[in-house]
Design a protein around this nucleic acid. Structure first.
Length: 712
DNA sequence: TTAGGGTTAG
């Protein structure tokens, strides 16, 4: 329950002094935590009027409030009221200095104290931990004469927060040996340590310990147990802990959201979010983040606006999530709006915010602005490896590979993502030789590739149809122990299929325990394009029995398979059921595939009618397929009409001339072909250069047809 | 003294 200044006036200090003080203390605590110093001043004034401002607890709280918002004048006044620097004031000053990051000043105050209590010692132990200075913290911990639960817990959770979970657990064992009883806070921290270490058995023994010590009903312990269960992959256990809780708080409701997210039920998570008895800015942030991570950045942004309408104050994390959502949406204007707001409240220097901004500008094609943000943090020396990676990725997205490479070469520290970013940049721009070169360099540097690196390099191998590379990568993936991942499995299936080893492709596919629609599509397409049309159609029918729905590429592959196996009616059936059954609107490629199917089987007038009935302008491939059919089945009349349309299209899209000349050439109409070529030369058009490659000693060498312009 | 969000590569 929140007290308010107004409610304070309804209490008569004389008749209920204790509850009056209690309300004031509550209020001051609230005011301090929300940094509402104006309200605090008003309350202070009111207390002076009633004459009880010198009440010891109130004075201390007022001091903490003024120190917390760095109002030194007011703080000094309070100190005067307290008759100088007694033990409590010393402790307050130490804590304030720790909060401001003045650890040396805190230490100086501590050293000058005539007497110290457990609060003074714990302040330094937790203070050094908070600022990552673990060794100094432990120095005080070991010398602390008041070894109570709180100082033990401060050290334990300090270790966890600094990523030393193993040390935290070791200290916890020492605590048990010392005879001091752990409390609910200790157990919460220990749960977190177990979750970080990812040790299932250890997690279970902590469960046992908590029950044995009788802490299984504490809200914070249960909250931690839910998170621990989730991290151990025990979704049902997480849920049963939540269900059995007698009392739940806003943290319990927030963590349960992730239980449903883990179960893949975003809708249920949202329902719970909507009906939660209490929400705070963290609950909002979680829901917004999950929408963003599940591929719904638009809903994430909508929820964010709703949050601000309800007067919740988004914090730094929340802003970074929203900036990331806006980056995905390429919403430059809204992004700049948020940027302006972030500047206004002064959190633009936060690494997470800066990185999200770099990403936002890069994704919107504004690498210059991204670079401005990047340079501003590099200057201040707070650039994290993620900042570098974001900027490299941004350059990669926008085709500025020289800039990307320069940054990559000058990075103070690289991680696997840095390598992945530069590799995927080269992949994006089809510089496959560089993909392999950088990947080799990565291996030589000792950096271990991750799933993302492998999927990029596999994609490059598939593009150059290199079976050797595919096999080599497959071996490395098995060695590293992630062979059955959906992404990697799919990439491997594709690589083998494109390199002509359809048996291996099928083997990988069959061994994948989890498949998504892309995995199925890749296999259906691989079979179809390798000449196994019937197998491809069979696999598609098998896919239909699962809960996975085909996408437009899956259907395209099936149509291709039908076309190449003469199963025209089956193909037409699939085409006609695209919209009603699969809810996919056919695109130009689907239509062309049907035209090809009809033309191949000699149903030429049907094919022509089909082209004419298309809801949009047919492209030259459609006419070319028809023409090709006309050649096979010797239908001059339809052929003439097809050629006429091809000429028309070629005039509109000069690339069509190339196709036209090829069609004439393949039909043996050499004079016509030559005429088209002549026309192309007159118009200054050139056929784009062909490209070939060969693999020698693990190096792919590319050969380009000699042309005047530089081929890519 | 605690438990619940965040940025990058795919």
């Amino acid at each position: 329950m929140k007290a308010s200044l107004r409610s304070l006036f309804s209490i008569n200090p004389e008749t209920s002094f204790n509850s009056y003080i209690e309300t004031c203390l509550c209020l001051l605590k609230d005011i301090t935590s929300q940094n509402l110093v104006i309200q605090g001043r008003a309350l202070h004034g009111h207390l002076i009027k009633t004459g009880i401002h010198k009440e010891r607890y109130l004075t201390t709280r007022l001091l903490i409030m003024y120190l917390g918002s760095r109002k030194s004048l007011e703080a000094n006044e309070i100190v005067k009221d307290l008759n100088g620097f007694d033990l409590v004031v010393h402790n307050c000053m130490i804590n304030a200095n720790i909060q401001w990051g003045n650890l040396e000043e805190a230490q100086r105050l501590f050293d000058g104290m005539p007497e110290r209590n457990e609060v003074s010692w714990t302040a330094l132990i937790s203070g050094f931990m908070k600022h990552g200075r673990v060794e100094e913290s432990m120095w005080y911990f070991e010398r602390n004469p008041f070894q109570n639960v709180i100082s033990w817990t401060a050290a334990i959770c300090g270790f966890v927060q600094n990523g030393f979970s193993f040390e935290a657990l070791k200290l916890f064992l020492k605590l048990l040996e010392s005879g001091v009883k752990p409390n609910e806070v200790t157990f919460s921290s220990i749960c977190k340590a177990c979750a970080e270490i990812n040790d299932f058995r250890l997690g279970l023994s902590v469960f046992g310990l908590i029950f044995k010590a009788g802490f299984e009903k504490h809200v914070s312990v249960c909250n931690s147990l839910i998170t621990l269960s989730l991290k151990m992959g025990e979704v049902d256990l997480a849920r049963s802990v939540f269900d059995r809780m007698e009392k739940r708080d806003v943290v319990s409701w927030t963590v349960i959201l992730d239980v449903f997210i883990e179960m893949g039920d975003l809708g249920e998570a949202r329902r719970i979010f909507d009906e939660m008895p209490e929400r705070n800015e963290v609950s909002w942030s979680v829901m917004i983040a999950r929408y963003n991570q599940s591929g719904y950045p638009e809903e994430a942004f909508r929820l964010f606006r709703q949050m601000t309408r309800y007067s919740f104050k988004p914090n730094t994390s929340c802003f970074s999530i929203v900036l990331s959502a806006l980056a995905s949406l390429k919403a430059l204007r809204s992004g700049m709006h948020v940027h302006a707001h972030v500047l206004k409240i002064g959190i633009e220097k936060d690494v997470f915010i800066s990185n999200a901004l770099i990403d936002l500008y890069s994704k919107c094609g504004e690498t210059k602005d991204g670079r401005l943000v990047f340079d501003s943090i590099v200057e201040k020396d707070v650039a994290h490896v993620v900042s570098w990676n974001s900027m490299i990725g941004g350059y990669g997205l926008n085709g500025q590979m020289e800039e990307a490479k320069e940054l990559f070469d000058n990075m103070p520290k690289r991680n696997d993502v840095s390598w992945s970013a530069i590799i995927s940049g080269y992949l994006e721009h089809k510089q496959f030789d560089l993909v392999f070169a950088v990947f080799n360099e990565m291996l030589l540097s000792g950096e271990i590739p991750n799933k993302s690196t492998f999927s990029s390099v596999l994609c490059a191998s598939a593009s150059v149809a290199s079976l050797e590379k595919g096999k080599d990568l497959h071996g490395k993936i098995i060695k590293l122990g992630f062979p059955y991942d959906v992404f990697l499995g799919t990439a491997l299936t594709d690589t083998y299929a494109k390199s002509g080893d359809i048996e291996s492709s099928r083997r990988v596919f069959d061994r994948m325990p989890d498949k998504n629609e892309i995995s199925w599509t890749v296999m259906v397409r691989g079979l179809a394009e390798s000449g196994y049309a019937k197998e491809s159609i069979n696999l598609f029918e098998e896919m239909e029995k699962t809960s996975i729905t085909p996408n437009e590429l899956t259907i395209l592959s099936v149509l291709f398979a039908c076309s190449h196996s003469g199963l025209v009616d089956k193909g037409l059936k699939y085409f006609n059921s695209m919209e009603p059954i699969y809810n996919i609107k056919p695109n130009g490629r689907h239509y062309t595939c049907v035209v090809d199917m009809l033309s191949r089987s000699g149903r030429l007038s049907e094919a022509e009618d089909f082209i004419n009935s298309m809801p949009f302008e047919p492209d030259s491939n459609a006419w070319a397929s028809l023409l090709s059919g006309c050649k096979t089945y010797k239908n001059e009349q339809i052929a003439e009409r097809a050629v006429k349309n091809l000429w028309k299209l070629a005039e509109e899209h000069p690339a069509g001339y190339v196709l036209l000349s090829n069609i004439y050439a393949s039909a043996g109409r050499w004079i016509d072909a030559m005429n088209v070529r002549k026309l192309m030369t007159e118009k200054g058009l050139r056929k784009s250069g062909g490209c070939s490659w060969v693999e020698v000693r693990n190096q792919v060498h590319f050969f380009f047809q000699k042309t005047d312009h530089n081929p890519k």
